[in-house]
């Protein structure tokens, strides 16, 4: 039962496009620097004048879980955090089905990478490092809550 799930939210107007979040993510998870290997992606186009963030939203009924042919993407029952593991074969089906661009590709290792909300650390590192407060980590507003009536109400 999902209750009180927390998510990382992006505020595009505050993002100045420095890629520190993505870079810190790669450093924290893989020990190497490269924003491309971060689980969060900053899409910036200076010519078209926008900054946009793509990040896993840890959906209910996540399409990536259904799409994964080796079954390496799983949802944690308690926290709602969706993770993948090293059984990934790099078929990119999850990348294709994700409507939010939350699945990233590590082209050197040929595996999909995705946000795990830094569950092994004290909190998401991207939120910790953002210099502009453009990322926030808070309870999702549309979280499922316990139904008020536990049983049938019609006598």
């Amino acid at each position: 039962m999902i209750t009180k799930q927390k998510l990382v939210y992006c505020r595009p107007t505050l993002c100045s496009g420095c890629r520190i979040c993505a870079n810190a993510c790669a450093v924290a998870h893989d020990g190497v620097a490269n924003p491309r290997l971060g689980r969060i992606a900053i899409h910036q186009n200076l010519l078209e004048r926008y900054e946009f963030q793509e990040l896993c939203r840890h959906c209910e009924d996540a399409p990536c879980i259904d799409a994964c042919m080796v079954g390496c993407i799983e949802e944690d029952e308690g926290t709602g955090i969706i993770t993948n593991d090293d059984r990934c074969v790099g078929c990119w089906m999850c990348v294709m089905v994700c409507p939010y661009g939350g699945m990233r590709r590590d082209l050197a290792k040929q595996v999909a990478i995705k946000c795990d909300q830094c569950k092994d650390l004290s909190g998401p590192v991207c939120v910790d490092v953002c210099p502009n407060g453009a990322l926030v980590y808070k309870e999702r507003e549309d979280a499922r809550v316990e139904p008020f009536f536990a049983g049938p109400t019609v006598a």
């Binding site: 790669a26 020990g31 190497v32 490269n34 082209l107």
Partner: peptide, 22 residues
Amino acid sequence: RGTRGLPVKDPQGMIEKYIELR
């Protein structure tokens, strides 16, 4: 276009240092 990572000697220390300096 670079898809390779640049190795960082002490990743955890580097992130902590960055936050401190920021």
